[in-house]
């Protein structure tokens, strides 16, 4: 995959969406995705939605909006992909959708408020986010980017958000 071929619209509209588990790195995923809606249909939680116009030529590809419904890592979608846009992985720990990033400005824990919702609800149970000595959440490289933390963050504008891997 040539790195220069990034497509037209992402350059215009900026952000890359958060992809389903097992997704190939972004430009390649958008190229391989056939918009068959099978992963979206397979998702038992209605997590996956087709991308809208604002994603330009990537419209129709599946994406996750974690604040609405995060990925619960049931791993139902990777095996149904016909083109290999999703690697057929079954181990939720192998998923690399994105990386959770904490905003210390709004995170309760950074203000001395004992809040552990993101750490408690993390499906990887302490591996992907842990509390440091000052009980602030620290994300590790084990983070799969499922977005459960972003979903449950009690701060009105979530203080922990998943940055899609393709956005890095």
């Amino acid at each position: 995959m040539k790195a220069s071929r990034r497509g037209l619209f992402p350059a215009l509209c900026g952000r890359v969406p958060l992809r389903p588990p097992g997704a190939r790195p972004e430009p390649e995923f958008a190229a391989l995705c056939i918009r068959c809606n099978r992963c979206i249909t397979a998702c038992p939680y209605k997590t996956l939605k087709p991308a809208s116009w604002i994603y330009g030529e990537r419209a129709g590809t599946p994406l996750v909006v974690p604040r609405k419904i995060p990925c619960y890592l049931c791993m139902a979608c990777p095996p149904v992909c016909p083109t290999g846009a999703l690697d057929p992985i079954t181990d939720k720990r192998a998923v690399r959708m994105g990386l959770a990033v904490v905003d210390p400005e709004s995170c309760f824990a950074h203000q001395g408020i004992l809040c552990r919702t993101c750490v408690d609800e993390c499906p990887l149970e302490g591996e992907a986010i842990y509390q440091d000595g000052e009980l602030k959440p620290v994300v590790t490289e084990k983070c799969v980017g499922c977005g459960v933390c972003e979903k449950v963050c009690p701060v009105a504008e979530p203080a922990i958000v998943v940055r899609p891997r393709g956005d890095q």
Partner: peptide
Amino acid sequence: VVASPLVALLAPPRLVTA
């Protein structure tokens, strides 16, 4: 050129069934 399968995005057979 745009690195995206436009046939998938735009062809009527998929659209009408999607």
